[in-house]
Amino acid sequence: MRITKIFTIIMLLVSVAGFAQGGSKKLDKIIKRDYQIIECTISKMSDKTVEYSLPGETLQISLDVSQIARIDFSSGRSQTFDVAAASSPVSSSVSSNPVIANAPMKTNTIAVLPVPYVNSDNLQSSEDMSKFAQNDLYNKLLDKSANILPLTVQDLRTTNSLLHKAGIDHNNIDDTPIEDLERILGVDNIVAAKVSFTMSSSSTATTYNSGNAKISDNDKKLKTNDISTTTANTQMYYYYTVYFDMYKNSTKIYSQTRKPFLNLKDSWIDSVSYLLKRSPIYVKR
């Protein structure tokens, strides 16, 4: 009888241990690139997909490996997925991503890029001034369309729309190769400018005195009634450097740097006009 009880207790302990192990079964962990963690059981892997099922389910779910950063298997082994390889369809090839696919090439067409407008003291870039400068250069080319024949200017909305789809703006335009920009925009000519500046101020004070003087009848002394007014004036000075480049079929055909003679707020506009008129695309007629 005693042996039977001991055997029963042992079997009970084995059953409890087995249940505990089954209830706490270790799961695989998929860590996605958006930092979501999926606890699951992986059943199949290939170069393109990973198939898994969630706890308590038999449904097989397929996940593209481009969305996976790492897998921690229940065995303790980890597998990391190459970020560069997964992102290459987006960044390494313009033509492989439909968002930034090649635009139809328009020969003898020039596009005006966004113009970075940067304060050199704090490296802050102004989006509003960048758009203003781009519009100013675009309008100058339109006004002188007869002087740049046979070139035509691509509509600014078209240029900015294509750049926006490709994730390019005034902040990263300088980091994008010209050959990629030409394919994205579908043009064989590009004008790229940049405005860099520093500021200083100068303050002056002007004092103006007014009043009158009279002699008192009683004591014959001179009495005055003076009024003094001081006016402060602060003048801002802008020190610009304008960088101006032109490209044709990915080759730089013109590159100049100019500092305006005057230190006024809009002096950079004069430098843009000066450089444009001396560029190789401009012909006096």
Rank of each mutant, 00 (worst) to 15 (best):
residue 2 R to P: 08
residue 3 I to V: 11
residue 4 T to H: 11
residue 5 K to R: 08
residue 9 I to N: 08
residue 9 I to R: 03
residue 10 I to G: 09
residue 11 M to T: 15
residue 14 V to Q: 13
residue 17 A to V: 08
residue 18 G to A: 13
residue 21 Q to D: 03
residue 24 S to H: 12
residue 25 K to I: 09
residue 37 I to L: 09
residue 44 K to N: 09
residue 44 K to A: 08
residue 44 K to H: 11
residue 46 S to H: 00
residue 48 K to H: 10
residue 56 G to D: 05
residue 60 Q to L: 15
residue 63 L to Q: 04
residue 65 V to R: 01
residue 68 I to A: 01
residue 72 D to W: 01
residue 76 G to F: 05
residue 76 G to E: 03
residue 78 S to K: 12
residue 79 Q to Y: 08
residue 81 F to Q: 04
residue 81 F to A: 13
residue 82 D to L: 01
residue 83 V to F: 08
residue 93 S to D: 00
residue 94 V to M: 10
residue 97 N to K: 03
residue 97 N to G: 10
residue 98 P to K: 08
residue 99 V to Y: 12
residue 102 N to R: 10
residue 106 K to M: 14
residue 107 T to I: 11
residue 109 T to V: 07
residue 112 V to S: 06
residue 113 L to K: 05
residue 118 V to D: 11
residue 119 N to V: 08
residue 119 N to T: 10
residue 120 S to A: 14
residue 120 S to G: 14
residue 126 S to D: 13
residue 127 E to M: 09
residue 130 S to E: 05
residue 131 K to D: 14
residue 134 Q to T: 07
residue 135 N to M: 05
residue 139 N to V: 00
residue 148 I to S: 02
residue 152 T to E: 14
residue 156 L to F: 12
residue 156 L to S: 06
residue 159 T to C: 03
residue 160 N to A: 04
residue 160 N to E: 11
residue 171 N to L: 08
residue 174 D to V: 09
residue 178 I to K: 06
residue 178 I to H: 04
residue 180 D to A: 06
residue 181 L to I: 08
residue 190 I to Y: 14
residue 201 S to H: 06
residue 203 S to L: 13
residue 204 T to L: 02
residue 210 S to F: 02
residue 210 S to I: 02
residue 212 N to M: 08
residue 219 D to R: 03
residue 222 L to W: 12
residue 224 T to E: 04
residue 225 N to P: 01
residue 225 N to Y: 10
residue 229 T to I: 12
residue 235 Q to A: 10
residue 235 Q to P: 06
residue 240 Y to W: 10
residue 244 F to T: 06
residue 244 F to N: 00
residue 248 K to M: 01
residue 252 K to V: 10
residue 256 Q to L: 07
residue 257 T to R: 02
residue 258 R to V: 15
residue 261 F to W: 00
residue 261 F to C: 04
residue 264 L to A: 15
residue 270 D to A: 13
residue 273 S to I: 07
residue 274 Y to T: 03
residue 280 P to W: 06
